[in-house]
Simulated assay, not measured.
Amino acid sequence: MSGLVIALIVDIVESRKLKDRVGAQRSIRTTFEDALRVHRPLRPLWPTVGDEFQAIFPTLGHALLATTQVRLSLPDDVDCRFGLGRGETVDVDEQAPGAIQDGSAWWNARRAIEETHRREHGGEPYLRSWFISNTPREVSAMALVNSFLLLRDASISSMRPRDRRLTAGSLYGYTQSELAEQEQITQSAVSQSLRRSGGAALVAAQHELLKGEIQ
């Protein structure tokens, strides 16, 4: 695959502490499948070594939306980290049962997820995502994207389970009345939850990023 793309590396937070790691991996794949029905990746999520997954997106906007949807929609006891890297990908061995890839997109995604680990275990325990690109035109854009990721992850990490479900539903395009029926609460309660949790602001921010056509 040639041209600049977004490579995504996903790993499971504290996977060794999970009682059902197989179930957790299954829930991650299912959640990604749901998130990618609207904005399809260049290559869907696939498992790699250990508790890692990978995917390839055509644009940064699509990758940011998908990872937001996934974090909001995962089961309460499962969480993921995301390393996003801009660059090129190349097939190393096309004859292998599963395509083995290399390239600057993967190097940057690996650096990004390592930076996420470092920051998460430093002074930013809520952080789950980071973006790295070594293209000259994106030096300043990296700071803007990572500022968004810091705020996004802090917001999601502080949400209660219902807040996440309502924010996810809103991001998927459900109306507040539809969400109220799903949760068996009033429309007013949905509106209050989205305002209080920051979910409404997060959804608005995601829509602005897509309108801006972040490539």
Rank of each mutant, 00 (worst) to 15 (best):
S177W: 05
R137L: 12
A35G: 01
T68A: 04
D91S: 14
D20R: 06
G173H: 10
W46R: 07
T175G: 09
A99D: 07
A201E: 09
I132F: 10
G87I: 13
S157P: 05
E120Y: 05
P75N: 04
Q54Y: 07
A7C: 01
R152I: 13
G85R: 03
Q54I: 12
D163L: 09
S191I: 14
H62F: 11
S197G: 06
R119A: 12
H62V: 11
S15K: 07
Q95C: 14
R37P: 01
E33M: 06
Y174L: 12
D11Y: 03
G83M: 04
R196N: 09
T89G: 02
L42R: 04
E94W: 12
M1V: 14
C80V: 15
D11I: 06
G23L: 00
L60S: 02
A112W: 09
D77Y: 15
A99Q: 08
A205G: 10
E213N: 03
G61E: 02
L36R: 04
Y174M: 09
F148A: 05
G3R: 08
G169D: 08
P125M: 13
F32C: 01
Y126F: 14
R195Q: 15
R16C: 05
P47D: 01
T30E: 06
D91I: 15
A205M: 14
L202E: 08
R196D: 08
T31M: 01
S104I: 06
S133L: 08
V92I: 14
V145Q: 09
L64Y: 12
I156L: 11
L42W: 12
M1R: 05
L8Q: 02
Q184I: 13
T89S: 10
Q176P: 03
F32L: 03
M1Q: 05
R195K: 15
G122Y: 12
A141Q: 09
P125K: 11
W130G: 00
W130H: 14
P44G: 02
Q54W: 07
R152K: 15
R29H: 03
H207Y: 08
L210A: 07
E181L: 12
S73F: 11
D91E: 14
G23H: 02
I113D: 03
A189N: 14
G122V: 03
I100C: 06
D76N: 08
G83R: 04
I132C: 04
S15W: 08
R137T: 07
V10K: 02
V13W: 08
A200M: 08
D76G: 07
M142F: 02
L84E: 01
Y174V: 06
G169N: 05
A66Y: 13
D34M: 07
E181C: 10
I100Q: 12
Y172V: 03
L171R: 05
T135S: 02
M1Y: 08
S197A: 13
P125H: 13
A96I: 14
W46P: 00
L209R: 11
I9A: 00
G23V: 03
